[in-house]
Design a protein around this nucleic acid. Structure first.
Lengths: 98, 98
DNA sequence: ATCTCATATGAAAAATAAATCATATAACTT
DNA sequence: AAGTTATATGATTTATTTTTCATATGAGAT
C-alpha cells in the first residue's frame, strides 16, 4: 500500500464523528453548540473533534473563548454524496456491516 | 442520524479491506490470487471479502470451484480519487490518524 | 466414493479504537 | 487576582473489530 488512505476513512466510519460532520454540514458550530445538538459528553466531542481537525476534515478558528468548527466541504460533501449514491443503487437505502 | 452511512466507511477504513480493494482496482481476482498478491492468510481474506461483498463494494461470481471477486468501480473508484485529492490538498500527501 | 483444491464459517483470542473521568488550560469577567 | 465559562488532555476502562485457528463445505478430478 502506497499511502495510508484508509486512515482517512476511520473518521467517517465512526458514528460520533459522522454525527459531528452531519451537524457541521448545516453550519459552523462551537463545541458547546455541537454538544447541545448531539447531546453528547464534552470530552467525547473534544476528542473526536481533535482527530477530525488533524485530518483536515474540519477546520477550527478561535473566537474569544469559543472555538468554531467548520466542515471542509470541498472534499467531505462530495464524499458523503457518493455513499448516498452507493446506498441507493446497491444497498436499497442502507448498507449493512455484517 | 437518518441512515447508517458510516457503516459503509468501516470497510474503507480497514487496512486489509483497503488492500483488497486496491488489488481489485487493477483486475478481478480469485480468492487464491488475492491471498498470493497480498500474502495474507486465507481465512482472513475470506472474512474480509464477506463483509465487502455484503456492502456491495465488491461482487462475486462463481467459476468452477473458484470465486472471482470484482470491484464495484462505479462508486468505489471515485471515492478513492476523492481521498487522494483531499490528501493532496489538505494533508500534503498523507493523512494522520492521531 | 474418495481425494484434493478452493473457499467459507464460527468461536475464541488478540488488537485497536472509543468513551469516560478527572483534571488542566485558556480567555474573559468581576 | 479570583471566579467562571469554554474547551482540551491524559490515563484508564470499556467496547468494538480483526485475526487466528480449527473445522466445514463445495466442486471438480481420480
Amino acid at each position: 500500500m502506497k499511502n495510508k488512505s484508509y486512515n482517512f476513512f476511520t473518521h467517517l466510519a465512526n458514528p460520533t464523528k459522522f454525527k459531528i460532520i452531519m451537524a457541521l454540514k448545516e453550519s459552523p458550530l462551537s463545541v458547546t453548540e455541537i454538544i447541545n445538538t448531539l447531546k453528547e459528553e464534552q470530552s467525547k466531542i473534544s476528542h473526536n473533534l481533535k482527530s477530525l481537525t488533524q485530518c483536515h476534515i474540519v477546520e477550527v478558528k478561535k473566537q474569544g473563548k469559543k472555538r468554531i468548527y467548520e466542515l471542509n466541504k470541498d472534499t467531505i460533501l462530495p464524499m458523503i454524496e457518493l455513499v448516498k449514491l452507493h446506498a441507493r443503487k446497491y444497498c436499497l437505502g442502507k448498507c449493512h456491516k455484517d
